[in-house]
Write a protein that binds this DNA or RNA. Sequence first.
DNA 1: CGCGATTTGTGCACGCCTTCACAAGCGCCT
DNA 2: AGGCGCTTGTGAAGGCGTGCACAAATCGCG
Lengths: 248, 248
Amino acid sequence: MSQQRHGSTPGEADGVPAFPDLPEATIARLPEYLRALHHLAETGAETVSSEGLAAAAGVNSAKLRKDLSHLGSYGTRGVGYDVALLVDQIEYILGLDKNRAVCLVGVGNLGHALAGYAGFASRGFRVVALFDADPKKVGEQINGLTVQHTDDLERVAAEESIAIGVIATPPGTAQAVADALVAAGVTSILNFAPGVLSVPSNVDVRKVDLAIELQILSFHEHRKASLTALPGGRSAPPANGGQEAVGS
Amino acid sequence: MSQQRHGSTPGEADGVPAFPDLPEATIARLPEYLRALHHLAETGAETVSSEGLAAAAGVNSAKLRKDLSHLGSYGTRGVGYDVALLVDQIEYILGLDKNRAVCLVGVGNLGHALAGYAGFASRGFRVVALFDADPKKVGEQINGLTVQHTDDLERVAAEESIAIGVIATPPGTAQAVADALVAAGVTSILNFAPGVLSVPSNVDVRKVDLAIELQILSFHEHRKASLTALPGGRSAPPANGGQEAVGS
DNA sequence: CGCGATTTGTGCACGCCTTCACAAGCGCCT
DNA sequence: AGGCGCTTGTGAAGGCGTGCACAAATCGCG
């Protein structure tokens, strides 16, 4: 699936890809739609209604329609959206047809798991290099790749024309690694280390902090606990229909 | 540091903790402030200005002041914020003084790493139970804990009064695990499995999808690539002061 | 060929969040 | 004691995102 250009590729009216500037919120949801669409495609569905796809992606149907309308008009009124076509569109917009090269820095507890994470490869990302500052880890084989020393990061990353760097080092070394990645020409960074990274404005950084997620949940636990003790607070309603309401 | 109640604990005017309802956006930033504050405390700082703390947390100083003002007035004009006091305040609001029990379901590639992730324990979360559906994994020792079978999840989770459940299973079993967690009384779930979870409305779910993060970065790569080819597009400005601009 | 059922695409209003700009408050120095 | 500089806390404005509600468009059927 998702192999050749269809008649008119969305943004290439004239060889120059006129890029629709999508709202950030929309961009963040496109991968979710894509996952739902792949799932639908596996079940053999040819078309989906906005209602159906919205349910599968866990969002409001109006929001979904507005999101997709930003990509252009790829639905048919009275029918719905062509699943295969929409998959191609979203993959094109997200640049997933490029099979981007990813490198991973820091092969510790978390990094080791990320190196073997199947979810990356299955969605078009190739982990092509692993780095670590610990000499004991250098040379180790993980998932068919040899761990290299971070001193070689800049050279190797430039050679392999790596687009995305993943930082899974301890907080103290994250900034130095980011600097090396930037120096090697990497313009997108996924950072698992707690703390703020300083990078040039043309570099995109996304941060994932697992402890922060737990802390946010902890807040809601705290809030819920104090609500149950409060006059107006409904104290743990056990049976409420059962479904719906997905956090954040 | 950060041991006893100070004079008037923020929300306990009358034994009943009146909970300030903070904006979601603020809640999501509090952990970041907390981390920055801990860092400052280690360097021996007594007080911080909003400007200083904002820089350390990577946000706008006005935003930080507004966020903190929601907790109450804990700054001193002309001086700044008392670091130790603010740490206590935020930890109280986030409910981190409760030392919450966490269980982890799915001890695969990612789950194994999460079980050993130091960042959890260091920030007040105790992983007290591990589960997996694979009989070969049951009984395995990880980080001092024995992996138990998911059939026992509901019973054990209820016994240990677990507040937060972490799902790191394959997508197919995530919903069943969520159902079991809910049945055991867990009201907060951190989900690493792709897909949408259906839970009662009193349960909070936060989702972390590593592939989605990469896809969002891929989009920006795609966008940047097409911008450089475009007339108005500034093509890779290499030297731009050097700092600032942290993505999302 | 026309009509009704269905579903998309979107104008509009509302609410949340961010950012600016500044008054109010606090400490220090003279 | 008084004034000055610094910093917080907040009113107001602007922007972004969401969701409703409906017009426009398409298909199928009689």
